[in-house]
Write a protein that binds this DNA or RNA. Structure first.
Lengths: 186, 186
DNA sequence: TAGTTTATGGGACGATCGTTCAGGTACTTT
DNA sequence: AAAGTACCTGAACGATCGTCCCATAAACTA
C-alpha cells in the first residue's frame, strides 16, 4: 500500500476542477443552454476530449458544476448568517447588502444558482444539492418561530429572482426596508 | 379597402397560435432547452418548416411563447387577487390554495414561468412581459403599505420556487400559515 | 378569368452537437 | 528495466440542429 497519493490522480483531479470552474463561467455568461463539451473546453483552454474523459457525459459535467455551485453558495450563506447574527438588530443591513451584491456584481452567479433551481425542479437527483443552503439555514436558526423563518427565506428568494428582471439592480437602500419587514417579529 | 379580414391570414394566425401552444407544452415537458423547430412542429403535428415561416427565427418563437405565457399568468393572477379580496380575511386561504395548485397539477406551467424569469434576466426585451403580473398586482393594491406588499410578493415567489425543488409538492395546509404570516399586518 | 398574395410543405445544406476510438505521454509499481 | 496504470488529445462518426430554397395549393384582387 502506498501512503502518498498518485501524482497523476491529483493532476487529473485538478483539471477536473478547472473544467467545473470553466463550466460555471459559461453558465454565468450564457446560461446552462450554452454548456457544451466544446465551449467548456475552450473556456478552460484544454482540448475538447478532456471533458469527455473526466465526465462520463455532458449531463455529468452539468450536474457536477451545479453541485459545486450549490456547495459554495451554502458556505457563503453560512457566513452571511454568522455575520448578520453578530450584528444583532443590524442584521437586516447585512442581508440587504448581500442581496444588492448578488444582484449587482455577482449577477451572473445568481442567475447560475437559479438555473440550478430549475434544473433541480426537473431532476430529482439534484434536489438535495439545491436545497442544501436552505437546510443549512434551517439548522442554524432557532426553531421557536419556524413560520416566520420560512417566510423570511421565501422573501429572500423572491427578492433575488425579482431583482434579476429589474432594468437596473436594486440598491441595498431600496432592499433594506423590505428585509427589515421580513425580519421584524409580528 | 377591404373590411372583412383575409381568410388566409386568419388561418395563418390560427396556426401561429397553435405553434405557440405547442411550444409551451414542450417547455413544460422538457424546458426551454428542449425547444427546437422540429420538436415544436412535431408537437403541433405540422411540418418542420411551418415554424420557420411563422417565426423569423427560433428565438422569435421562444419569445412569443413566453410572452403569451406571461400574459396568461397576468390575467390568472388578476382574478386570483379579485377572489382573494372578496373573501376578506380568508384571502390567505385562497392564496395558499392557488400556490398548492401551481406546485401540484400545474407544476409544468409554473416551471415554464420561471424559465421566463431566467430568460428575461438575460434578455432585457423580455423583462416587461416577465414583470407584467407584478405590475398588475402593484396597480391593484392600495399603496398605503407598499413595503408590506412587496414583501408579500417576494414571499409568494420564494414559496413557489422553493416548492419546485421539494420532493413532493407542499399542500395548501402547509403553505397556509406562511401565507397568513406574510399577509398579517405588522 | 387572369394575376397577385399568402400559407404550406418537401428536401437539402452547412454547422454544431455528443461521443467514440486509437495512439501517445507521464507516472507508479514490481 | 519492464509492466501496468492513469491521463491526455487529435481525428472522426453519426445525429441533430437552424435555416434556406422552391414548388404547390388556396384565397383574394382586378
Amino acid at each position: 500500500m502506498k501512503i502518498q497519493s498518485d501524482g497523476r490522480k491529483v493532476r487529473g483531479e485538478k483539471r477536473r476542477e478547472e473544467l467545473i470552474a470553466a463550466a460555471l463561467r459559461v453558465i454565468e455568461r450564457d446560461g446552462a443552454a450554452g454548456v457544451t463539451h466544446r465551449t467548456v473546453a475552450a473556456e478552460a483552454g484544454v482540448p475538447t476530449t478532456s471533458t469527455t474523459y473526466h465526465f462520463s457525459s455532458l449531463d455529468d459535467l452539468l450536474i457536477a458544476t451545479l453541485i459545486s455551485c450549490a456547495r459554495d453558495m451554502a458556505t457563503e450563506v453560512y457566513w452571511m448568517i454568522d455575520r448578520a447574527r453578530s450584528r444583532g438588530s443590524r442584521g437586516a443591513e447585512e442581508v440587504a447588502g448581500l442581496l444588492a451584491e448578488a444582484l449587482g456584481p455577482s449577477r451572473g452567479r445568481t442567475m447560475a444558482e437559479y438555473e440550478l433551481y430549475l434544473l433541480a425542479a426537473r431532476r430529482p437527483e439534484l434536489r438535495p444539492a439545491a436545497r442544501r443552503w436552505l437546510d443549512i439555514l434551517t439548522s442554524m436558526v432557532r426553531h421557536d418561530d419556524e413560520v416566520a423563518f420560512r417566510a423570511f427565506l421565501a422573501g429572500i428568494d423572491g427578492l433575488l429572482i425579482q431583482g434579476l428582471i429589474d432594468d437596473e439592480p436594486p440598491s441595498a437602500e431600496e432592499l433594506r426596508p423590505i428585509v427589515d419587514y421580513l425580519l421584524k417579529p409580528h
